[in-house]
């Protein structure tokens, strides 16, 4: 069937089988940042924004996005790089395969809650698995980013 999706600010009309998953559709459009790490909605690698909300694109049919806005990391490169630099400064990107999903979901968290506590960060990102970093470096990067973005007092208040 014919679907019309606004992908990273551009309208894309395409034919899609009813069982086509959103992850396969965005990859077919060249958005290779979107990765598949499992078949059971556990890993978080395929996170994209659907109408500004983070979703697992492996668990959404492409036709579900018909007439809606989809944003992948390709569509928010500057914002992604601004935050990503803090992960890079910890060396916590490691193999990088989980990075796009993490960056997307972390940005979604910051948009929803620019002042998250340690607990809220861990809870929100619990579905973003990483096998390399042990999460500590990512957490350091996130804290450093929030401190830089919103000021030192911000994190202290949260303490």
């Amino acid at each position: 069937m014919l679907i019309n999706i606004n992908l990273n600010g551009k309208n894309v009309r395409s034919e899609a089988d009813p069982d086509l998953l959103l992850i396969d559709w965005v990859r077919a459009q060249g958005c290779y940042s979107v990765k598949r790490g499992c078949e059971t909605s556990n890993c978080g690698l395929c996170t994209v924004f659907l109408e500004d909300k983070p979703v697992l694109s492996c668990s959404v049919l492409a036709v579900r996005a018909d007439g809606k806005r989809v944003v992948t990391l390709e569509g928010i490169q500057e914002e992604g790089a601004e935050f990503g630099a803090f992960i890079a400064d910890q060396g916590a990107e490691q193999c990088g395969f989980c990075n796009p999903g993490l960056v997307m979901n972390a940005l979604a968290l910051f948009r929803e809650n620019p002042n998250p506590s340690e607990e809220e960060i861990r809870e929100y990102l619990a579905g973003n698995l990483c096998r390399c970093s042990g999460y500590e470096g990512q957490m350091r990067g996130i804290r450093a980013y929030l401190e830089w973005k919103y000021g030192k007092s911000h994190m202290e208040n949260e303490g």
């Binding site: 290779y32 940042s33 979107v34 990765k35 992948t72 990391l73 390709e74 490169q77 992604g80 790089a81 990503g84 630099a85 992960i87 890079a88 400064d89 060396g91 990107e93 193999c95 990088g96 395969f97 990075n99 796009p100 960056v103």
Partner: peptide, 20 residues
């Protein structure tokens, strides 16, 4: 503690893996 040479490419989701 220098940054990994490929860090920003990986963090911004560039197509650098086998299936990409």
């Amino acid at each position: 503690p220098v940054r990994k040479k490929d860090a920003m490419q990986l963090l911004t989701g560039q197509p650098v893996y086998t299936d990409d």
